[in-house]
Write a protein that binds this DNA or RNA. Structure first.
Lengths: 337, 337
DNA sequence: CTGAAAGCGCTAACAA
DNA sequence: TTGTTAGCGCTTTCAG
């Protein structure tokens, strides 16, 4: 059995309050401080955060609910966040809900039972129903990457529409007009925004929209493979494809390889995220790159702000929108019209 | 403030023990069961796992300490484990120690304070010093992928030596004799085993070892890039390279691309892990593939076994060794001697 | 089957 | 500054 504060009290002859005070930054007489530290050493004492959590009604734990840990965008954000949160004494419980609304709901309930101090969520259920119960606790919720309807809370987003517009702009400048898109699942915020950017850019350039050029994918590698295959099959005259997330970009490259298509001679491609992957492609892929690091830092900052100073609650929800960047490779050809 | 069992007791007129018994699968009179359930509904009661944890001295939480969440091998294993553990009611606190021994040590202490019921660790410190303290609690430790010296506990490993031998065997069969290797960091168990396999295969084939063909990398993408560049520079006659983890494989492909090397005409390559990446390479990469899914399931199974039935402790440490598989692509040429 | 009561390890008044 | 004490919400004897 682990040592407790009582053991320290007994060993030092001091009262519990003194020990507690020592641990919580109170003033303790130098002589006693030394005694306590010696006892800690001897007993191998480690604070029991469980007991502390029960007493203070704060577990120093925050829950993270994401659609897929294998998704590299999620993994990178979590890595960054966890680092910061832990350095502030917060533990992170990550729940991967496999892009399943029911599992997402269960994950939130699981976290409620564990009395986490806050939840960070990249939501699958766009109605936000799964967060209703947690929000009633008055504890903070921060949304990553996706807005939802029913819940008013802080969020860190990416300017997806602009991201897509930028990519399309690049294609259009280089003379492309038959441009396909491998989009994300319907109902997902980022997917809709990116698609909107696609349409807007075409409209601005006066290029008519063609339905067969729009493939509705599912943000998975297999979806990317299928998307590329279908777009190529349905549109023999297509000269360029924009792929709207990393997994599908990898899938599209698999498709390109397996069909033996030459990039950029036969097809120009702009992908999404993971600069290292883009470098590993032949030729180097042009991509839209999201600032995952910034996102991670902002999320951590926001939730820590809520957690540390409890005053400023119930203000306007804060929404931060970060910009993406295009990293040019050699996967876009210049078309002579 | 959240509802407590007391509130349920008050609302139903029952005693605390009855409510507790209800939650813990005891027998409760049908009539009371209904009453309790109604009260739960009304009060939006959710069990407080913190209080339960304090009382039962079991937090239903397990800590996971890994070198790098961004490492895809880690991420996949964790995803698989977390899924299983959560479905058994266990939360997972993942600590990414950034391949830093000091951070690894801190992570373990952090988890001790939170009184996790067990630790799963892919160790960075090969002496195991960081686990000593936790082991004294008598709670289970399971090691992933790497053995360590000082600690006797269960582990799930991969037959790394055989994996490397198989890859080398493939090269040798196809007529390669000047084969380079991009190895992992010294002191890391898997890296040493893979290197050993490399040497063994060469010896068996009667091929002399050449030091300039052995690059000591660090399991990072950048390390892979540098490794490939250096091997190519130092060994103009090298015909094949074996890369010993996924990140370095990606790095090697970046290097190959940036140097404009043709695979497999100018250089044959066998990489490691991530079949999807291998498919996305042109030409499709031949890789050694580790059974991440199996590893995840085995780890979860082992720790759950320890956690559920506490009898069979202090037995012989259980070591499981899983086999890898070669997934053939088109990145290895047949050499006519 | 159910109720009363003790106590897990800690914090936070309050008193000294 | 330090000691005493009362809980935080739950489980778990022990009676009834």
């Amino acid at each position: 059995m682990a040592a407790t504060m009582k053991d320290i009290a007994r060993l030092t002859g001091l009262g519990l309050a003194t020990i507690s005070s020592y641990f919580n930054g109170g003033n303790v007489r130098e002589k006693n401080r030394v005694k306590i530290e010696k006892a800690i050493e001897e007993l191998h004492y480690e604070v029991n955060e469980v007991a502390r959590g029960l007493k203070t009604n704060a577990t120093k734990t925050i829950g993270v609910v994401i659609p897929e840990l294998n998704n590299i965008f999620c993994a990178e954000i979590i890595t960054g966040m966890e680092d910061i949160l832990r350095s502030h004494g917060y533990a992170t419980i990550v729940c991967d809900c496999r892009t399943d609304k029911k599992l997402e709901q269960e994950a939130v309930e699981f976290l409620i039972r564990r009395r986490v101090d806050g939840i960070i969520n990249m939501p699958v259920d766009e109605t936000g129903a799964h967060l209703k119960r947690f929000q009633k606790t008055g504890k903070p919720i921060v949304l990553i990457d996706r807005k939802i309807q029913g819940i008013s809370c802080d969020s860190v987003l990416v300017d997806n529409k602009k991201a897509a517009e930028d990519a399309m702009q690049l294609f259009i400048e280089k003379g492309h007009r038959k441009i396909g898109i491998i989009g994300g699942p319907e109902g997902i915020f980022t997917a809709e925004e990116r698609l909107e950017g696609y349409y807007t850019a075409l409209k601005k350039a006066g290029i008519p929209i063609k339905n067969s050029l729009v493939y509705h994918g599912d943000y998975t590698i297999q979806g990317g493979v299928r998307g590329l295959e279908e777009l190529v099959r349905e549109n023999p005259d297509m000269t360029a494809v924009f792929v709207t997330n990393y997994e599908m970009t990898m899938g599209a490259m698999i498709g390109v390889n397996e069909l033996g298509i030459q990039i950029p001679e036969q097809l120009s491609v702009i992908g999404f995220d993971n600069l290292q992957f883009a470098r590993a492609c032949r030729p180097k892929l042009t991509i839209v790159s999201q600032p995952t690091d910034r996102i991670a830092r902002e999320i951590a900052r926001i939730i820590l702000e809520h957690l540390e100073k409890k005053e400023e609650r119930s203000e306007e929800p804060f929404m931060e929108k970060l910009q993406t960047e295009i990293m040019e490779g050699k996967s876009v050809s210049i078309l002579n019209r």
